[in-house]
Computed example of a mutant assay.
Amino acid sequence: MSRRTAPVQPAGSPPRTRPLRADAERNRQRIIAAAQEVFARRGLEVTLDDIAHHAGVGVGTVYRRFADREALIEAVFDSEIQRVVTLAEQALSHEDAWEGLVQFLTLTGRDFAEDRGLKEVLLEGAHAQNRVATTRERLTPALSALIARAQQEGSLRNDIEATDVPLLQLMIGAAAHHTLAVTPDLWQRYLALVLDGLRARREAPSPLPHRALTQEEFDQAVPKTLPPRSVADRTGDR
């Protein structure tokens, strides 16, 4: 009986990627689901040990599927941060510019209130830098156009800039985080106050005591909003 030999891969061709076995894929999906829950509740500074424990697998299994925590963060939030861009584009297509802006701030406010990890990855910019930078490149033009439309129709005060919006979202997200265990929907109260302050009126609004950040200043400021990780956090990833 002749032995079958494996087919020879042509020289110079890219290596073939073998699909994951069914059990390996189940573990991968279990890890992602566990990470979504842990990141949403506790933020991104948890360790891979925490996620492995929540998933019911060994930390070695996590490292076999994901090279490090950044790779896991990107896998978890890839679709979520793209969804924020879609929300901005949908708001821009709204017939009423003010209602489009309210829709965007309300839907993203709920997302950030319910998912601490999403707030941190998108608004605080301490993780998944390449993915977040790409998202901002798509988000900023839509958001700038949305603001310009609302100002042109006279519903939004004229001194608001695109860089104001993510910082306002960060403020509302912080309120949501601190009150989540007591009253999960309190963030809506502060969103209403923010919207009231954004709305243009016949009488002149109170002048703002400081100019808005430039885009360059915003990019410099945002990654510094998270405190440095402790030694215990860093060693927990090993």
Rank of each mutant, 00 (worst) to 15 (best):
E124K: 13
A174I: 08
Q151V: 02
L146P: 02
L180E: 04
R138D: 11
I147S: 03
G173Q: 12
H177Y: 12
D164M: 10
A145Q: 10
R138A: 14
H178Y: 09
H177N: 10
M171R: 13
H178I: 09
N130G: 06
A128M: 09
H210T: 13
Y190F: 15
H178D: 10
R138W: 07
L143G: 01
T179Q: 06
L198V: 02
Y190E: 12
L139E: 04
T135L: 11
D185P: 00
A212L: 08
A133K: 12
L170V: 12
L195T: 03
A145P: 00
S144F: 00
A212I: 07
L195R: 04
D185E: 13
H177E: 14
L193D: 00
Q152I: 00
E161A: 15
R136C: 05
Q129H: 15
L139M: 11
P209Y: 04
E161Y: 12
I160N: 09
A142Q: 01
S144H: 04
H177C: 11
D196I: 00
A204F: 03
S144G: 05
L193P: 00
D164S: 08
R149S: 08
L198T: 03
S155D: 10
L167H: 13
A133S: 15
S144M: 00
L180T: 02
A145I: 00
V194F: 01
A150M: 06
L191K: 06
L208W: 08
T179R: 06
T135G: 08
N158R: 15
R149P: 02
L170R: 15
S144A: 13
E161W: 13
P184A: 06
L156A: 04
V132I: 14
Q151G: 03
H178S: 11
E203T: 06
P207C: 07
R136A: 09
Q152N: 09
G173C: 12
R189W: 10
A148G: 01
M171I: 12
L146W: 02
Q151T: 03
H177W: 14
L156C: 02
A212P: 13
L213D: 11
Q151P: 03
V194H: 07
A174R: 14
T179N: 06
P207M: 06
W187Y: 14
R202G: 14
N130C: 02
A126T: 11
V182I: 09
R211T: 10
I147A: 05
A150G: 04
T135H: 09
E161C: 07
P141M: 01
P141S: 01
D196V: 01
A133D: 15
L191S: 04
L195H: 03
V132E: 08
A133Y: 04
R199D: 02
D159E: 07
L186Q: 09
R136P: 05
P209G: 06
E203A: 05
P166N: 14
H177G: 07
L195K: 04
D185T: 13
Q169M: 15
H210M: 13
L180P: 00
T183C: 09
Q129A: 14
Y190V: 09
L167G: 10
D159M: 08
E203Y: 00
